[in-house]
Computed example of a mutant assay.
Amino acid sequence: MDLLVPEDVHLGPLLVIAPAITASFAGPLLTGAVGLLAVAAQAYIGLHFGVLTSRNVIVQIAALAVLSAVVVCFCVVRERRRRELARVRSVAEAAQHVLLWPLPDRIGPLRIACLYLAAEDEAQIGGDLYATTRVGDGTRVLIGDVRGKGLAAIGEAALVLGAFREAAHQHTGLPELAAALERSVSRYQADFEPEEEAGERFATALLLEIPDQGNISRMTSCGHPAPLLLSPGHAVTVPSLHPAPPLGVGGTGPTGYAVDVFTFEEGDTLLLYTDGVIEARDRAGSFYPFPERAARWTEASPESLLHHLRGDLLAHAGGHLGDDAAFIAIHRSPTPHTRPGRHHTDR
Rank of each mutant, 00 (worst) to 15 (best):
V5S: 02
V5T: 06
P6D: 06
E7I: 13
G12C: 08
G12D: 08
A18K: 02
P19W: 04
A26S: 12
A26E: 04
P28T: 07
L30K: 09
T31E: 01
G32V: 03
G35I: 11
V39N: 08
I45Q: 08
G46M: 05
L47Q: 12
H48A: 12
H48P: 03
F49N: 01
G50I: 08
L52N: 01
N56Q: 08
V57D: 11
I58V: 11
I58G: 00
Q60G: 07
Q60Y: 13
V71Q: 02
C73N: 10
C73R: 11
R80F: 06
R82Y: 00
E84G: 02
V91W: 02
V91F: 12
A92Q: 02
E93W: 04
A94Y: 11
A95T: 15
L100A: 05
P104L: 02
P104I: 01
P109Y: 02
C114P: 08
Y116R: 07
L117N: 03
A119G: 01
E120Y: 08
G126V: 06
G127Q: 12
D128H: 07
Y130L: 05
A131T: 04
D137I: 00
T139Q: 06
R140C: 05
V141S: 10
I143E: 01
V146M: 12
G148E: 14
G162M: 09
G162W: 10
A167V: 04
A168I: 06
H169F: 10
Q170E: 14
G173L: 14
L174Y: 06
P175Q: 04
L177N: 06
A178E: 05
A180H: 06
L181Y: 09
L181N: 11
S184Y: 02
V185E: 13
R187L: 13
D191V: 13
E193F: 05
E196R: 15
E200K: 09
E200P: 00
A203D: 06
A205W: 11
L208Q: 01
I210C: 15
I210W: 10
P211G: 13
Q213D: 14
Q213E: 12
N215T: 15
N215V: 15
I216W: 13
I216E: 15
S217D: 09
R218M: 10
S221N: 13
H224E: 14
P225H: 15
S231V: 10
H234I: 01
P239R: 05
P243F: 11
A244E: 00
A244R: 12
P246H: 07
V249W: 13
G250D: 05
G251N: 08
G253V: 09
G256A: 12
V259W: 07
V259M: 12
F262G: 01
T263H: 07
T263N: 08
E266Q: 07
E266L: 01
E266R: 00
D268G: 09
D268Q: 13
T269R: 03
L272C: 07
Y273L: 00
I278N: 08
E279A: 03
A280Q: 00
A284Q: 03
S286F: 05
S286G: 05
S286R: 12
Y288R: 01
P289F: 06
P291G: 08
A295K: 04
R296N: 04
W297D: 06
E299V: 02
E299I: 02
L309H: 10
D312R: 14
L314G: 05
L321W: 04
G322Y: 05
A325K: 01
A325H: 12
A329V: 14
A329D: 14
I330V: 15
H331Q: 11
S333A: 09
P336T: 09
R342W: 09
D346L: 06
D346G: 00
D346I: 03
